[in-house]
Write a protein that binds this DNA or RNA. Structure first.
Length: 113
DNA sequence: GAGGTGACTGCGA
DNA sequence: CTCGCAGCCACCT
């Protein structure tokens, strides 16, 4: 019944990420049930720049808190700029206190599910 | 219809 | 700590 594409589901979860928080591709993948296919999440973000409303892809990083997809932004350095604008510290393309700012949808959303 | 790609993750050394 | 290898699945050509 879910006529929605995998992309749309990823976009929805990403848009639910609270400001000042970040999450990982694997967390979203697990929440969507596609656990193990974290690549699909990142791949979905490939079209995040073409969907509406805009998707805060800058809040989505890899497991290490590294801005792996920053090069997909326009310009790439904008990703870090957006994160810092939300109060998130970024050092060497890495999120500081990533573990503290980590937002897991499979946990946070499950409480209000 | 088939093949290739990839903004990842986990484990072993 | 870092480096390398294999698995995973939806979308694109």
């Amino acid at each position: 019944m879910d006529r929605v594409s995998f992309y749309d589901q990823v976009y929805q979860v990403v848009r639910l990420i609270p400001k000042g928080r970040v999450t990982s591709y694997g967390a979203i993948a697990a929440y969507l049930g596609t656990k193990g296919s974290s690549r699909m999440v990142g791949y979905a973000m490939n079209g995040a720049s073409k969907v509406d409303p805009e998707v805060p892809a800058q809040r989505v990083v890899n497991r290490n808190g590294l801005l792996t997809g920053k090069f997909h932004f326009h310009p790439p350095e904008m990703m870090q700029q957006l994160l810092e604008d939300e109060g998130i510290e970024v050092s060497d393309d890495k999120i500081v206190n990533f573990r503290k700012l980590f937002w897991d949808p499979s946990i946070e959303l499950d409480l209000e599910r």
